[in-house]
Design a protein around this nucleic acid. Structure first.
Length: 486
RNA sequence: GGUCCCGUGGUAGAGUGGCUAUACAGAGCUCUGCAAAAGCUUGUACAUCGGUUCGAAUCCGGUCGGGACCUCCA
């Protein structure tokens, strides 16, 4: 029985029921993905893990099919800067650069894209859960069409070889500031207005198409008879790709809180400019859901504080990526999450405890049947994706499993836990792996078991210590024993 | 300057106007020759000052502290 899912919608500043826009009942989700100019960090990962839990919840708890699209931004200023000939940021692993700017950019972005794909996979995000992972550079013509539409509607203008979106023209007919309260009068103090080399009419305008500068990779673009070689602006990428792959409007648009403005506001404006009727505020997506940032050890993550971590950094510290997954979903997505190494360790302990329970149940039940997510867990997840409360309910559920369950009880509990795992993706339901026990360990253990049975406690304890010294421990049962690595 | 969020026990982190969050760590107990695992029990917690209320960590206001965004950063 599916549970209705409610989510906090930034657009309306209230919780709303998720109901598919399209009659096919498929929930369409667009997530702003990474700009592939370096390796992603755990802050990025929090955003992607949040969306992963969201889409899995929509499938498992909400009972909907999902089309999840996450883009790869593979063209932007930083990418061009770092892939240009002679760049210090060019990865040595890629060998020599060529004289072709487009080719260099391509090799550069594919390199980081692959790292990104590997990183999210290691954190339990399944590639087959994506409906598409489009590269921006593959949709340039769709972006160009959209820009033409915006200009035709009177909201775009050409200046110095670039095309800009006129916010002031747009505001005459549509709302601007729907996702973020804009105070146009107070737009000056404290704002870092970057002295762009591009000529805009107004500082609030943003670029739709950036004219090519010497040596830069570029695409041809013909607009109203003008030739404007260049590249797409950031916001138009997501507008065009979401429209092309999901159709407008779609159901859920996700991203970090920082993207509310300007990125999402501008995406929304662009889609409205193309498809909206004056006076009516067309909505690119029904629900806009934004995740909070994370801090590390209570401080903002930054390179200067030396607390800036990539997934690979954590792997090299010997952390299990799934423990990291658990730690990164331990706070509600709209709360600041404090990432700590103690937290990962605690997550690891809790994860292992439940894994042991699962293995015990598998031993008893054999097969793992299908089951439903326990009600408390489902209810918490359906309530604006309250993962911490869902996890608490999960622990309570695990505690409620009888110590010595019957085969039926074990099977039922397993089915429910597997349903939970369709969302959490932290555990395995394969039988407990059989340990390969070195002969010396087995021999020592046998000796100790004999000593113990002879009630030769001193010798038994001595052998226990000896086993411990080589990293193994014995667990005494009633009629038998097991040995495990410490 | 503007818009907005947060401040919970050793740590992380939910939460409802009055009743145990949960996890990790700690303490005690049960079971164990010992140990491990498991189970049970346990902790003066809710920034601060006022206000509303029979009653507030939960509502309102002030203060202090932290944080986010304000034109390409998840």
């Amino acid at each position: 029985m599916p549970t209705p899912i409610r989510l906090y919608n930034t657009l309306t500043r209230s919780e709303e029921l998720l109901q598919p826009v399209h009659s096919d009942g498929i929930v369409r989700i667009y997530s702003c993905g990474p700009t592939v100019y370096n390796t992603a960090h755990i802050g990025n990962m929090r955003a992607f893990l949040f969306t992963d839990i969201l889409q899995r919840t929509i499938r498992s708890v909400g009972g909907f099919d999902v089309h999840w699209v996450m883009n790869i931004t593979d063209v932007d200023d930083k990418i061009i800067r770092d892939s240009t000939v002679g760049s210090a940021a060019w990865p040595a692993a890629l060998g020599e650069q060529t004289g072709d700017a487009m080719e260099n950019m391509d090799r550069f972005t594919r390199y980081y894209e692959q790292m990104f794909v590997d990183d999210i996979a290691s954190l339990g995000i399944r590639p087959d859960h994506f409906f598409a992972m489009p590269r921006a550079t593959a949709y340039v013509s769709q972006m160009q069409n959209m820009i033409r539409g915006i200009v035709k509607a009177g909201y775009g203008y050409v200046s110095d070889g670039s095309v800009y979106f006129s916010v002031s023209a747009f505001r005459k007919h549509h709302a601007y500031g729907r996702l973020y309260t804009i105070d146009a009068e107070n737009f000056r103090d404290g704002v870092r207005i970057d002295a762009d080399e591009y000529e805009r009419d107004s500082v609030s305008d943003f670029v739709l198409w950036k004219g090519q500068k010497p040596g830069e990779p570029a695409w041809e673009f013909e607009l109203d008879g003008m030739q404007l070689p260049g590249r797409p602006g950031w916001h138009i990428e997501c507008s065009a790709m979401s429209k092309e792959l999901l159709g407008l409007p779609f159901d859920i648009h996700t991203g970090g809180v920082d993207l509310r403005f300007p990125h999402h506001e501008d995406e929304l404006a662009q889609c409205t400019a193309c498809d909206g009727t004056a006076g009516h505020d067309f909505t690119q997506a029904r629900l806009w859901v934004h995740n909070e940032f994370l801090e590390v050890e209570g401080r903002k993550m930054s390179k200067s504080l030396n607390n800036f971590y990539t997934v690979n950094d954590l792997r090299q510290r010997g952390l299990d990526p799934l423990d990291v997954r658990f730690a990164l979903i331990s706070a509600h997505y709209r709360s600041v999450l404090n990432f700590t190494f103690d937290g990962v360790a605690a997550a690891g302990k809790a994860r292992q405890r439940i894994q042991n329970v699962i293995w015990d149940l598998v031993d008893r039940a054999g097969d793992v049947p299908n089951g439903m997510v326990p009600e408390g867990v489902a209810a918490a997840l359906a309530n604006d994706l309250n993962v911490p409360r869902a996890t608490a309910a999960l622990h309570e559920f695990v505690a409620s499993i009888p110590n010595a369950p019957t085969t039926e009880q074990a099977a039922q509990a397993l089915g429910q836990l597997r349903a939970v795992n369709d969302i959490y993706a932290l555990w395995t339901f394969a039988p407990r792996p059989t340990l390969t026990i070195p002969d010396t360990v087995a021999a020592l253990a046998a000796l100790r078991w004999q000593a113990r049975n002879d009630k030769n406690w001193a010798e038994a304890d001595r052998l226990r210590v000896e086993l411990g010294a080589i990293g193994w421990q014995m667990k005494d049962g009633k009629d038998s024993y097991t040995v495990e690595p410490l």
